[in-house]
Amino acid sequence: MVGELDGEIYSDKPSKRLVPQRKVNLLPSGLRGNFLPLAISSTLSVGAGNRPDTPERENALCFPDPGYSDPEILPAMTFFRILSTILVLLSLLLLMIALGFDFWVTDNSSIQIGLWKTCIRSVCFQYSPVPGYIDATRAFLFLALIAGFLSLFALIASIFRSHLGPVALTLVSAVGSFSAGLCAMIALAVFTGEVAKTSNVPLGQVPFGWSFGLGWASFPLFLITGAVMMFVQKSPSS
C-alpha cells in the first residue's frame, strides 16, 4: 500500500514497516504550473530556426561559406584573367608564326629549311616525299594550336560564366594551355633531334632560325598560362 500524507510518501512492503520517503520537487512551486508552456515555447523557437549555439554553428561562424566571394579578391582575379588572356594570345601568335614561316634552319641566308619547303640560294623545293619527322612536327604543332584555341575560348567564356555544366571553365582553360605546351614541346623536340641527326653535326652547331626560336618561346608561355589559370580555378571567388 502506498499513500501520501503532508507531502510525504509512505510505502508498504511485505514483512516490513512503513518507511517514510521524502518527495523531491525539481522545480520551485511558482514555476510548476508554467513549465509546460515554457517547454513548448522553447521547442517552437528551435524549430523556427533560433537554434542554440552548437559546435556546428560555431564552426559556421568561424569559417566562411566556400561560395562566398570577397569583394577585395575580385579585382585580383580579374587581373589574372586578363593576364592569362594576353599570355595565351601571345603563345598562339608565336606558334602560328613559327608554323607558317620556313626559317627553322638557316645557313648564312643561302639555305633555308622549314616545315613546308626547303630553299637553297632562293630556289625552293616542296618536300616529296615528306620526311617522317616533318610530319610529326606538323601534327603536334597543329594539336598545340587546337588546344591553345580551346584554352582561349574557355578563358573568354569564364569571364561570363564560371561553369559549363559540372565542369569549371577555368579548369578547361588550364588543361588546354598545359596540353598546348606539351604538344609544342614534343613537336620541337622531335624536330631538334632529327635535324641534328641528319646534319651530322653537334646540336650546338646547328644553325636554327628565328621560326624555330618562336616555336620554343610559345612553350613556356603556354605553361605559364596554365599555371595562372590553375591559380584562378583554386581561388575562392571562382
Rank of each mutant, 00 (worst) to 15 (best):
F178A: 04
V46D: 12
R17K: 10
E58G: 03
G193F: 03
I186F: 02
E194N: 06
R17F: 06
F212A: 01
R81D: 05
L87A: 09
A227F: 12
S162P: 06
G49V: 01
L99T: 15
M229Y: 04
I186Q: 10
L44Y: 12
I73A: 14
F35L: 12
R138S: 09
H163C: 02
I40F: 10
L214H: 02
W216K: 01
S237E: 15
M185C: 07
A76Q: 12
I224T: 13
F153L: 07
Q126P: 03
L141E: 08
E8A: 04
S84E: 04
A187H: 01
L90D: 07
F219V: 12
L164Q: 02
A184T: 13
V228R: 01
A217M: 07
S218H: 08
F35H: 15
G30R: 08
G132L: 08
V19C: 13
I156M: 08
G213E: 03
L61K: 15
V19L: 15
F101T: 11
D53A: 15
A154V: 02
C62F: 07
L83Q: 05
R161P: 04
F191C: 06
Q233M: 13
A147G: 02
V24C: 07
V201W: 12
S162E: 07
A189T: 13
N200E: 14
V190Y: 02
K16H: 14
G33M: 05
S177P: 07
G33I: 03
D107C: 08
L44W: 09
L5E: 12
S151A: 15
S110N: 15
L44F: 09
P37E: 00
I9Y: 09
V232N: 10
C124L: 02
P166V: 00
M230V: 11
L164T: 00
C119T: 10
F103L: 08
M229T: 03
L27C: 05
M185Q: 09
T118K: 10
A227Y: 08
L89R: 07
L155M: 05
C124E: 03
F79I: 08
D70C: 14
L5A: 10
M1D: 13
H163S: 07
R138W: 09
G67W: 06
L74V: 06
D65W: 06
